[in-house]
Each structure stands twice: as structure tokens, then as C-alpha cells.
């Protein structure tokens, strides 16, 4: 059984480190659509996976994962938008956990957009 004492220990350890990492405008933002359409299409595991991978690759200082509502492209959910400062926004569509790992590795770490998963790669209807 987890106790609150463990949380206190984490707090004490973190205390000195926080603040060094104040939000700045150089953060890359990864945004997951979490409205009814996104959730029904499987956005929750995608969000969890992205967050895990970003932690495991030690990117939490540079990348912030957040969520948003419906962006009006329900048929393409789960949708993940990647916003790198100074670059055009990239919209990944029909995401799943495997694609999420690939986006972290190739785009966030490698710096190359995974073209085949983007909205631009599909025939818009």
C-alpha cells in the first residue's frame, strides 16, 4: 500500500531541482485531442505512451505533453499535434501506441517529421 510518506520523500528530493526548469518559450509542445471523438478512437493510451516515452528518453526538459478538445477532424482521431518552436505545426492522424513511439524517436529525438503519419499524407475529403 502506497503511503503519503513516500510522496513527502519525493517532494524533499525534488525541492531543489524544481525552478531550474521553469516554463520557457523553447519548449516543444505535443498536444493530444481528448474530446469524445479522440477518446473513443483510442487517445488515452496514445497520450500515456507519448508521456512515458518522453520520460524514458529524458526529454521532459524540452518537451511538454498536453491535451486539448475536439479540433474538428473527428474522422482522423486520435490526433497528435507537434509544435516545435520556430517550425510549422505538424498534425499526426490516426495515431496508436506504436506510431507514438515512432514519432518520439524520429521527430522529437531525430528531428525529422514522420511524413507518412501526417494529415498532409492523406487525401483530404
Amino acid at each position: 500500500m502506497k503511503t503519503l510518506a513516500e510522496l513527502k520523500a519525493i517532494r524533499e528530493k525534488m525541492q531543489n531541482q524544481v525552478g531550474l526548469r521553469a516554463e520557457d518559450h523553447n519548449h516543444t509542445r505535443v498536444v493530444v485531442g481528448m474530446a469524445t471523438c479522440g477518446i473513443a478512437a483510442g487517445a488515452r493510451p496514445v497520450l500515456t505512451k507519448l508521456s512515458q516515452e518522453i520520460q524514458e528518453r529524458g526529454l521532459t526538459d524540452k518537451v511538454a505533453v498536453t491535451q486539448t478538445g475536439c479540433i474538428g477532424l473527428c474522422q482522423y482521431e486520435p490526433i497528435v499535434e507537434v509544435m516545435v518552436p520556430g517550425e510549422a505545426k505538424v498534425t499526426y492522424i490516426r495515431m496508436n501506441e506504436e506510431k507514438a513511439v515512432e514519432v518520439v524517436n524520429r521527430h522529437l529525438v531525430g528531428g525529422h517529421v514522420v511524413d507518412e503519419y501526417t494529415l498532409g499524407a492523406t487525401d483530404m475529403k
Partner: peptide, 20 residues
């Protein structure tokens, strides 16, 4: 609210806290 009282300004998004 109990968690926040203990954590103060350490956010929930902090990997260790999130895991906890």
C-alpha cells in the same frame, strides 16, 4: 488536495510524482 499540500510547487507532471 492532500497531494498538493505535501508537494507544494512540485507539479504532478514531474515524472517521479506522476509515477507515484
Amino acid at each position: 488536495r492532500e497531494f498538493k499540500e505535501i508537494l507544494g510547487d512540485v507539479p504532478f507532471s514531474e515524472p517521479e510524482v506522476s509515477r507515484y
